[in-house]
Design a protein around this nucleic acid. Structure first.
Lengths: 241, 241
DNA sequence: ATGCATTTGTTCGTATGTATC
DNA sequence: AGATACATACGAACAAATGCA
């Protein structure tokens, strides 16, 4: 085993076991040198790996040493983006995956949501309505907030994070296409109507209905960006009944 | 921007753009030193990061430089495992997520599978039957092969990879519990019957049925490892109708 | 606001084990 | 088996950034 790997493993384990909590500091590089009896270059290689894994962050000149950072899904997002590019995932696969995640989030939300969470969705939908005139950027943020509120209400944090990640990967893949889309105002209006519809199903506790509407909404929104002969794969997901 | 980050970014971009293909070699460390006008230590930090991201692999003494490795889901798996531990995902959340992935995989497989893929599932099921007497290890491998065949038949590689990853994370979380489970032979027999049932639904093209049975199977198999008061979250997923 | 001590970022030189030809 | 080029690892050094008195 490489020298730097020993350090990575030990520090990683300490963080994952919760012995080192976010905000706390690692010893300085020179202290780690003494602690592990290795050279500074080796310590630095270990710190680079930990940093790239999103566990710590170090700044030049900081006397306190590397900081343990709170979890963020960016690492997961990065590796999924890599997956998408390396295995050349199609937009169809991404949208299809998003459809299944979002549909299930809505299903669970319909059955488990609290009144507070319903209020969050109402608020997010209101922001969507208010931001139509502010342009697509603003509207998109509100749209994301709505879907996040639903995913939170599902009670499954893995579902929530994956939904975030897949959405962001898919959006980057079609960012330029959307930018050139015509008639975005009409698109936004239609999207709002769809979201209102799904929210009513969630409010009514109609899980199957919420899931179905959520799938249909995503299909209507994204199908035009998918080659016609691939849309059948998306429809296969819609016709569940 | 840090010097090593420049190198990471450039090499990463070249790999992701497909200019450097798996099996090809990077220049040697010394060549990279000349190419980027940085020190050896800086190059090595960059290579460590690329290695930890699963993009390259370097061996001591190799006259050729670091090798570009084909994509493997281990990076995704590592970051999802980190997510599971850091945000303290419950087993319930993992199983629930696996239920939704596997159910959708079965749904899509029922609608899209080819005869060849059906044959693969038949073969995997046969291995499951044959390996009951060989112990849980062997049986578990065959079980995994079956689910993988279904996921492949879904036609969505993202679904396939995520299914793999979540299954592996969930399995590591309950490895010790399963090892101590009683009556594993009966459990295996029941599991085989369940798999045969879902396979018939897939063969018949009954997507909704396949999905429903797949969810139920996972529930029956894993519910006992989930605290009783959390099982309601799994059942919420089953009662979709 | 200004140094000052300390830390990280980076470089260079060197020694050692190792894989390939 | 030997030569060669390579990666691994160490130590010393300087510049830039940071925190503190």
């Amino acid at each position: 085993m490489r020298a730097y790997e020993r350090i990575v493993q030990q520090v990683e384990e300490a963080i994952l076991r919760g012995e080192l909590r976010p905000g706390e500091r690692l010893p300085s590089e020179r202290d780690l040198v003494r602690q592990f009896s290795v050279s500074r270059a080796t310590v630095r290689e270990a710190l680079r790996v930990l940093q790239s894994n999103g566990l710590v962050r170090s700044r030049a000149g900081d006397p306190a040493g590397a900081e343990i950072v709170p979890f963020s899904p960016v690492t997961l997002q990065k590796s999924m983006t890599t997956l998408a590019r390396l295995s050349e995932l199609t937009l169809t696969e991404l949208i299809q995956f998003r459809m299944l995640l979002d549909a299930t989030a809505n299903l669970l939300a319909a059955k488990l949501r609290t009144e507070e969470q319903l209020a969050e969705m109402d608020a997010a939908l209101k922001v969507m309505r208010d931001s139509v005139s502010l342009g697509y950027e603003e509207f998109s943020r509100a749209d994301v907030a709505f879907h996040d509120a639903v995913a939170r209400a599902s009670g499954n944090r893995l579902l929530q994070v994956c939904n975030q990640v897949v959405r962001s990967v898919a959006l980057t893949l079609i960012a330029e296409k959307i930018a050139h889309a015509l008639d975005r105002t009409a698109q936004m209006e239609e999207s709002i109507a769809h979201h209102a519809e799904v929210l009513e199903a969630v409010r009514a506790g109609d899980g199957a209905g919420a899931a179905r509407i959520a799938r249909q909404n995503l299909y209507d929104y994204y199908a035009s960006y998918v080659p016609e002969d691939e849309r059948v794969f998306l429809r296969a997901l819609i016709d569940q009944e």
